[in-house]
Simulated scan of single mutants.
Amino acid sequence: MRNDKVLNLLGLAYKAGKTVCGAAAAEQHLRKQAAYILLLAEDCGANNEEKYLRLSTQKDINVIRRYTKEQLGQALGRAQTAVVVLTDKGFADAMSKAVQAMD
């Protein structure tokens, strides 16, 4: 994780209070409030995958699917998490640039 700029930015956004983590909280936030990026674990369940991809498409939210539940959790200081919503445009812009640099 040390050299992964996306995960480092995710950790900073979490510490700044600019993320929503966990399935129920993320779903509620995606439906009702501003969200800029959805980080969805590669190894999340099929039902979660379908639901969150549908929501992100409806709301035109970028999705990042490069990390496992453990990698996302580690960036947040947790054991694991499957869904993280980024709620800050500045962090979202920086994260989008970091993802583009990886491709």
Results as ranks from 00 to 15, higher is better:
G90N: 10
V85P: 00
A13Y: 06
L10Y: 12
D103F: 10
A41K: 12
V99Q: 05
Q80C: 00
R66E: 12
N3W: 11
T68M: 05
G45I: 12
K15Q: 10
Q71S: 05
Y52H: 03
H29V: 02
A13C: 12
V84S: 04
I61R: 09
M95Q: 04
L53T: 04
R66H: 15
D88P: 02
C44K: 08
L12R: 05
Q71E: 08
L40R: 04
E49I: 13
Q100D: 12
K32S: 10
M1C: 02
G11T: 00
G90D: 12
Q80W: 06
V83C: 13
A16H: 12
Q100C: 09
A35M: 11
Q71M: 05
L53R: 14
A23N: 11
T87F: 06
G45S: 15
G45F: 14
Y67A: 05
M102T: 12
R54E: 12
K15L: 13
V83H: 11
R78G: 00
D43W: 09
K5M: 07
R78Y: 01
Y52A: 01
M95G: 06
E49F: 15
A13G: 10
V63L: 13
E42Y: 11
K15F: 11
V99S: 02
G90K: 13
I64C: 06
L7H: 00
L86Y: 07
Q74V: 08
D103R: 07
L12C: 00
V85F: 01
A24P: 00
K69T: 04
Q71Y: 00
A16S: 14
K89T: 09
V84H: 08
A34E: 00
R66M: 14
K69P: 03
A34I: 01
F91S: 03
V6S: 03
E70W: 05
H29L: 01
T81E: 00
G22L: 06
R78W: 02
L7E: 02
A24S: 13
G90A: 05
M95E: 04
K32W: 06
T68F: 08
K89A: 13
R78F: 00
R65Q: 13
N47W: 13
L10P: 03
D103K: 07
Q71C: 02
Q74C: 08
V85M: 07
N48W: 15
Y67M: 04
V99P: 01
K32A: 06
L86Q: 05
C44W: 07
G73Y: 04
A35I: 06
F91T: 06
D88H: 08
G77T: 02
D88V: 07
T87R: 11
C21T: 10
L9D: 00
G17N: 10
L10G: 08
N62K: 03
H29G: 04
D43V: 12
T19W: 07
R54L: 12
A26V: 13
A13K: 08
I61Q: 10
K59Y: 09
Q100F: 08
